[in-house]
Design a protein around this nucleic acid. Structure first.
Lengths: 401, 401
DNA sequence: CCAATTAGTTTTCAATCTGAACTATATGGG
DNA sequence: CCCATATAGTTCAGATTGAAAACTAATTGG
């Protein structure tokens, strides 16, 4: 009724095992496993692994990196790793800036570039044009480093339809039902460009390239308060694709009206604008206002400390509810909340302890260290991940070419 | 890192296809598909379906039910259906009653029995003893109807460890870390007895045997306020197995202290006890108090209508948060909330519209019609479902026997 | 320099699906 | 009554794939 549940064919076994072997290689970062180690790790026979690895090497996804002697005696193994001469471009459109990065299959950020850009209210075509300039830089970097670009990921701060490349709504950009053509940013990349949501991408970036526990809630404090839910090392997006809207959890039933039309949403207490306003900070670019807020916090200006403490308290209420509802055991703070982390944490932890005592251990509340590259890494990572999960399709395509 | 991700073997294809065919037969209730129709429906060839069905019939899971002529000409097909001479016993321990039911593979409730029983504070052994009497009734009914019992499911109002048959905690029963031996209730049943959570089972019962949309939140108003989250036709239990704790969402940060140690939880506003207290109803059994409340509502006694209206309002706050966070599009009210449904719905809908305007269409807020058999059906259904999802294991077992 | 040890390949075999040919059983028109 | 047509279901050769075991390759230490 839901998935059409395709029949199992004999060939599916190979699809699955190709992915299993590739994933094992990907997981074993720094270790460069041999075929024999992969056989032991996966439960497959050496014969099967040899055959599978041959296909993966031929397609260019995996490369052999010299010999590897581990034990005392015996023939040394051939080290295997994800080919670092294949890469994916991660891109991000946000309210105040644009950014690109080049990530190789092994997960190294090989190039990074960002520009400030006031995108709120700007027509999508204009923004895409500017982004194309950054993408060209990434392409040039790839050529310089000898990296073949397989595809790209583009994160935007809004709800997207990944299949049709439509931004369904991005209120903070004032976009609604905007058809983008992200694939044109990377002409010729075999896997094209995948559109995704900013908070979700950041959560995935944190999972794959940051402090990646298998289950956690990522809290994204950009202009809005967003979230990304990771369960069992997978992104939970919900039936309609818009799960994780932490910013519109009701934290006070008598609270003020929110831009979403509801009342008492977390965003009205802990959104960037709300914090700036409560701290009495106005005017200037986002960067300037953030600087002013941090300066005020450093001098312990009462209005500023109170504003951040209040935000932490209400964030604690929201997280208590979220943790109880979804059985979440760890939280990672990103974006604005990462910047304010140190000032936010005390009131946040106190609030969590008040509203959900014993549920979330303080050491499970962490601050993202990926800073602004998390979203990029996540956007690119989704494409890398799709190859790791279905290498068979990639093999087919590369055989045709 | 999380699942050990077993390697794909050639034989896995058959496992999957056995399940695919069995599931197709199960989904096609009333239609009794032929092998040819299954082939068309699944995408497998007739040859493969014939071979798979042969195994399923031999194991007793599927039975052939006479000829079936559909078109104008041609040889008629052999109708196939889940064997209604195989059944599973669903059992429920709750605070105020015990219940059992016999469910055949096709999902028909063939026998049902319940007794009132004050189980709060009762030692588990005593409760299990009484339940054994009910289980014996179900076994006798199975013999009378010629049904072979494959296994059973036992739902309890608390957090359970399904692997070790331990009730980790059931605060409303005053149980903590209680080792049960549910399998002894159905001596000789090849699949044993599976322990599960009451709210989750009720949600699954609603999914499989009620108004089963693929995505919804089931709200269980028993003594506590629980919930079960169904996403993509599967139960979401979270990393620790305790997701869906709707009762401890914070609906008012200045609310009273809750039994969980937190403050302002939904349960303190909309739990059974809270409603009775606010309505000024005390004394007597649960059934008597419920009767008094319904009577007071019918005569529009102000305290009672106000109590229920308040409960609905706060339930709306919790559902608004839950719907935003998990992207939930439909809600089913069960238990106490189903009983109060008509009186609760107006304030609940108004509150939802205030706190999350436009998110949940009124027609997607429904009241369960399964009444007290929902939990039973879900508990038994989990065992039936496990057979449908891995018939290969069942085939193996039945070949050995 | 050879025994021991470990890595990786080749070969044979069994499981399982597909596809095509074949058998089985019904309807309806001449 | 009988045969063309149509549909259901079975049988059998062919292809894919991993398991198991035998084999080849490469390295170390005595």
């Amino acid at each position: 009724m839901n998935e059409p549940t395709a029949p199992g064919r004999v060939g599916d076994v190979r699809r699955r095992n190709l992915s299993l072997v590739l994933d094992s290689i990907a997981k074993t970062v720094d270790a460069k496993p041999s075929r024999a180690q992969l056989a032991a790790g996966t439960g497959l026979t050496k014969a099967a692994v040899s055959s599978l690895v041959a296909d993966l090497v031929e397609s260019g996804l995996v490369s052999e990196v010299g010999l590897y002697r581990d034990g005392e005696r015996g023939r040394p193994g051939q080290g295997l790793e994800l080919n670092s001469r294949r890469g994916v471009v991660g891109m991000e459109i946000n309210v105040d800036y644009l950014a690109v990065g080049l990530v190789d299959l092994a997960g190294n950020l090989r190039f990074h570039s960002a520009v400030e850009s006031r995108n709120r209210g700007m027509p999508p075509a204009k923004v895409m044009e500017q982004l194309a300039g950054l993408a060209a830089e990434a392409k040039a970097a790839a050529v310089a480093e000898g990296i073949a670009i397989l595809g790209g990921g583009l994160a935007v701060p809004g709800l997207v339809d990944e299949k049709s490349n439509v931004v369904l709504s991005a209120p903070n950009l004032h976009w609604e039902s905007e058809q983008l053509n992200p694939t044109s940013l990377l002409e010729g990349a075999p896997l094209g460009v995948k559109l995704s949501n900013e908070a979700n991408s950041a959560a995935l970036g944190e999972l794959w390239y940051g402090g990646g526990k298998p289950d956690f809630l990522y809290v994204s404090g950009e202009v809005g308060v967003g979230g990304g839910v990771i369960i069992g090392s997978e992104l939970y997006i919900g039936p309609g694709g818009s799960a994780g809207e932490l910013g519109h959890i009701v934290v006070h039933p008598e609270g003020p009206e929110c831009s979403c039309g509801g009342f008492g949403c977390l965003e009205t207490f802990a959104g960037q604008e709300a914090i700036f306003e409560a701290a009495g900070i106005a005017g200037g670019t986002l960067g300037e206002r953030t600087g002013m807020l941090l300066a005020a916090l450093r001098t312990q200006e009462p209005k500023a400390t109170q504003a951040v403490s209040d935000a932490g308290r209400y964030l604690g209420v929201a997280l208590a509810s979220a943790a109880r509802l979804m059985d979440i055991e760890a939280v990672v703070l990103g974006g604005h909340f990462a910047v304010l982390g140190g000032w936010l944490k005390p009131s946040l932890l106190a609030s969590l302890e008040r509203y959900a005592p014993g549920l979330l251990a303080p050491e499970n509340l962490t601050i993202s260290r990926l800073e602004h590259s998390g979203t990029l890494l996540g956007a690119a990572g989704q494409v890398i991940r799709s190859v790791i999960e279905s290498p068979f399709e990639f093999l087919l395509a590369s055989k045709l070419a």
